[in-house]
């Protein structure tokens, strides 16, 4: 099932991650086939030549849904209680999102696993290796969540 509603949002913004949330929560049956996903994730868009300051977004996955999305200040981020953080420069995020939009899902060079494996351009990390391992344990669900960008008309406003 795909959502018929057209979703529009600017990237990076809480609204953009919320659009992915909306799509995920509208497709519970599909996510059920992948299994539970339980993570407190922080997605970080790092400043680069196109963007001046880092932006962080806390996203909570619970069972088959995304239950919370919010932008985090540095103080909020410290208190968020993350399991893992996925961080990449704005340019890499933009390329990934455009790729997902163009192909309907990330192509071979733009999956979260591919982008983060060698710590560049994305980096996956956390304070506790076991909690970082949650990302690997439930990766299909997170990839599906991000692939939701295919259905979001994204404007880029760094």
């Amino acid at each position: 099932m795909t959502t018929k509603q057209t979703l529009r949002a600017a990237f990076p913004s809480a609204a953009w991650f919320a659009a992915l949330q909306q799509r995920m929560n509208g497709e519970t049956e599909r996510f059920k086939r992948l299994g539970f996903a339980d993570s407190r994730a922080i997605f970080i868009v790092k400043a680069d030549a196109e963007m001046q300051r880092d932006r962080s977004f806390g996203v909570v996955f619970d069972t088959y849904e995304c239950t919370e999305v919010r932008e985090l200040s540095p103080a909020d981020a410290a208190a968020f209680g993350h399991d893992w953080k996925l961080e990449g420069p704005y340019g890499a995020w933009k390329e990934m999102i455009e790729n997902i939009r163009a192909h309907g899902a990330a192509d071979a060079d733009h999956t979260l696993g591919r982008l983060s494996l060698l710590k560049h351009p994305f980096r996956l990390y956390g304070d506790d290796q076991m909690r970082v391992d949650l990302f690997y344990r439930q990766q299909s669900s997170f990839q599906e969540y991000i692939d939701g960008a295919a259905a979001v008309e994204t404007t880029f406003s760094p």
Partner: peptide
């Protein structure tokens, strides 16, 4: 497996490695 996902060139190979690495991560955990 993670490297396999990195190397996969099509949705099928990507999905195989993504599924098996999820399983393996539980065993390691």
């Amino acid at each position: 497996f993670r490297f396999g996902e990195f190397l996969g060139r099509n949705p099928c190979d990507k999905e195989i490695f993504r599924r098996v690495l999820q399983d393996e991560a539980r065993h390691v955990s």
